[in-house]
């Protein structure tokens, strides 16, 4: 029988074995799948990751250099303009009696490799422990949260995006402060589900979703996306909430790694697109209405010009 299978019907036998192995792995529990994947990844994929790093260091640098030259020129012009605006901003803040924003470190990095899988799920960036990027750091763009650093070498870091099964995020509906856990659901993509929210809670389509900071990995206040769909689960106990991510994971090329001294701190309010409106005292409002108040610098501007300052107050625009 075995002789018949392996000698005369080798092709069909191999196909059946391959399909059986594949289906067996698919039927494993998610936790077990993650363990098997982790083990194989550190044995099978290690040479490949080394090769990717090597290509990035040699061939990839040529490509990147071409882009960086043109970008450098553009950034130099922007930098000059921002410098002038920063000086003006400081002067106006003093005028309005506003405190300086609190410091935070953002390490800029470029994406050098993407997940091999069609649906994505991970990125490799060109900064590592030598640049202060360590596992567990929040990774973001000015649009919002990308994911978290999973493991780092001195010059590279693997980032799990929100579209990875191993990247769950403690999240919050910004309007109502309702907490939940954001998870990528295996199904039609790119769909993120906000789970563990009671059917009694107030959640509406269009509500903004931000990190809650409860997980201890992501600082609070980072934009994740907006609520796209709200429904009740079959039991009627919990809400099924679908989130539209703010970040387009397929096209992200430059990212920032958040490296605060205290991960439980609050993310800077001005980091995520919305420009906070200063609350003015009646005395101040005269000068504000006159058009003297300029908008607070946007994320890119802040990232480019932020200078760490000791003892600064956390995330309060106005005192």
């Amino acid at each position: 029988m075995l002789r018949y299978l392996f000698v005369r019907r080798t092709d069909w036998t191999v196909l059946v074995i391959a399909c059986t192995l594949s289906l067996s792995m698919m039927l494993l529990e998610a936790r077990m799948q993650a363990r098997v994947a982790w083990f194989l990844q550190h044995t099978l994929l290690a040479p490949f990751e080394y090769a990717v790093g090597w290509v990035d260091q040699s061939v990839g640098v040529f490509w990147e250099n071409h882009q960086l030259r043109s970008r450098l020129t553009q950034l130099q012009i922007e930098s000059d303009a921002l410098q002038a605006e920063r000086i003006e901003n400081v002067r106006l803040r003093r005028l309005l009696h506003l405190e300086e924003r609190h410091p935070y470190d953002l390490v800029a990095a470029s994406v050098v490799a993407r997940s091999l899988d069609r649906l994505g799920g991970s990125l490799t960036i060109d900064k590592g422990t030598a640049d202060g990027v360590e596992p567990g750091r929040a990774v973001l763009t000015p649009d919002g949260l990308v994911g978290r650093a999973e493991r780092s070498t001195p010059h590279e870091t693997r980032v799990l995006t929100l579209l990875n099964r191993d990247c769950a995020v403690a999240a919050r509906i910004e309007r109502t402060r309702v907490d939940g856990v954001l998870e990528w659901e295996f199904g039609s993509q790119p769909v993120l589900n906000l789970r563990y929210i009671s059917s009694q809670e107030d959640v509406q389509v269009g509500d903004r979703v931000v990190t809650s900071g409860l997980g201890g990995i992501f600082p609070a206040g980072i934009r994740i996306g907006t609520v796209a769909k709200v429904a009740l689960d079959p039991n009627g106990l919990m809400k099924e909430i679908v989130i539209n991510p703010a970040v387009d994971f397929r096209s992200v090329e430059e990212i920032l790694v958040y490296t605060p001294s205290d991960l439980r701190g609050t993310a800077p309010a001005d980091l995520f697109l919305e420009e906070p409106k200063p609350v003015l005292t009646p005395a101040d409002s005269m000068s504000a209405d006159s058009g003297a108040v300029r908008p607070v610098p946007t994320a890119k501007a802040v990232a480019a010009t932020a200078q760490p300052k000791e003892g600064a107050a956390p995330d309060k625009v106005v005192r």
């Binding site: 196909l15 391959a18 399909c19 192995l21 594949s22 289906l23 067996s24 792995m25 698919m26 494993l28 799948q33 098997v36 994947a37 194989l40 990844q41 099978l44 994929l45 490949f48 997940s115 091999l116 899988d117 649906l119 994505g120 799920g121 991970s122 579209l163 990875n164 099964r165 990528w184 295996f186 993509q189």
Partner: peptide, 21 residues
């Protein structure tokens, strides 16, 4: 397929199954 699966968001084995067939 298995190499792809190790780096994927989908269940382990899906790419392996599709590419085997």
């Amino acid at each position: 397929g298995l190499i792809q699966d190790l780096d994927a968001s989908v269940p382990l084995g899906l790419n392996a199954l599709a590419k085997s067939i």
